[in-house]
């Protein structure tokens, strides 16, 4: 697939502190790309570097072949950004605010922004922004972001201040944007939301890229928990596509991708007392990198693997 955003060995240092370290990433045109990681993991620094607000210490980032620092203006013509922490001009009305931001883009998108704000987000645009609640401000900013006629949407924690129904609306708008061919970077902390809409997900930790997961493959994968009557075998036939995720006495948790019928046939011949089949949510993957017992030295090989 054609990549629209690329970073290569992107590094940002503040004194001795690495906000980003050797981040190499490609985001494909038209995909929804999830960025996951705890606070301080480098998600926002990555986004701000892409927008040309931060200059990389080493490496580079590009959007549609344009250098994010030197061609920042051209990059921002292609990108709409929703900041993680919203600050607005309180003395403007909702409508004036949308108009102001649209005029900074030459006036494009105002009609659509008003439509989304009034009809989808149900905002009163005649009210002063200072009288909006935090969630209403977030909705106003989202209306603006989704209305911009751009190729790329970067949404930094877009649902953080929203009620559950508004969150659903936002996810629907993301899917609409994707259907229209826009590329979306969706940074967030709510794993279920990221899981639901993303084509791929990157997990970051302490400024480093730990893992990139293809969510389509993941959705096809299933978790199988089997309890054997006797001591289970240590090796399994390759053609079954079984990967042992956890072994606990006679109980084994498998990850499985492939034909389910042959798997069930095989299990029926093994003397299984119990079997449970389900899917694994993103939490399991996330906890591999951010679980309470995870140590940096254990993750070093994974970082190397993610880079390669």
């Amino acid at each position: 697939m054609e990549s629209i955003i690329a970073t290569h060995q992107l590094t940002k240092k503040y004194g001795d502190f690495y906000a980003l370290r050797n981040l190499s990433l490609e985001i494909h045109r038209g995909e929804v790309f999830g960025l996951l990681g705890p606070n301080g993991s480098g998600k926002t620094t990555t986004i701000r570097t892409i927008l040309g607000m931060i200059r990389a210490t080493e490496g580079f980032a590009s959007v549609a072949g344009l250098d994010c620092w030197n061609d920042s203006l051209a990059v921002r013509e292609r990108v709409s950004y929703l900041p993680g922490e919203l600050r607005m001009f309180g003395y403007l009305s909702g409508y004036q605010h949308l108009k102001f931001l649209c005029e900074l883009r030459g006036g494009a998108g105002l009609e659509r922004a008003v439509h989304i704000a009034e009809n989808i987000m149900e905002l009163d645009l005649n009210r002063k922004v200072r009288r909006y609640s935090t969630g209403m401000k977030q909705k106003l900013a989202l209306a603006q972001a989704f209305a911009d006629p751009v190729e790329i949407l970067i949404l930094d924690e877009p649902t953080s201040a929203l009620d559950p129904s508004a969150r659903g609306l936002v996810l629907d708008l993301v899917m609409t944007a994707k259907a229209q061919g826009q590329t979306v970077i969706f940074s967030g902390h709510v794993l279920s939301e990221v899981e639901r809409i993303s084509d791929r997900v990157a997990i970051m930790r302490r400024g480093q890229l730990m893992h990139v997961e293809d969510m389509h493959s993941r959705r096809c994968a299933r978790m199988v928990l089997a309890r054997f009557d006797e001591e289970p075998p240590t090796e399994f036939p390759d053609d079954l596509g079984l990967i042992v995720r956890r072994r606990d006495g006679r109980e084994i948790l498998f990850e499985h991708q492939g034909e389910i019928r042959s798997l069930l046939d095989w299990f029926s011949r093994q003397g299984i007392s119990e079997i449970a089949i389900g899917t694994e949510d993103l939490r399991g993957l996330y906890d591999k990198f951010h679980g309470p017992d995870v140590r940096d030295e254990e993750l070093a090989p994974l970082v190397q693997s993610a880079r390669s």
């Binding site: 709409s80 950004y81 900041p83 607005m88 931001l101 900074l104 883009r105 030459g106």
Partner: peptide, 14 residues
């Protein structure tokens, strides 16, 4: 300090 720089400079304004 007010936090409004992001909003303006994320638009195509040099």
């Amino acid at each position: 300090e007010r936090g409004t720089m992001d909003m303006i400079l994320s638009r195509p304004v040099s």
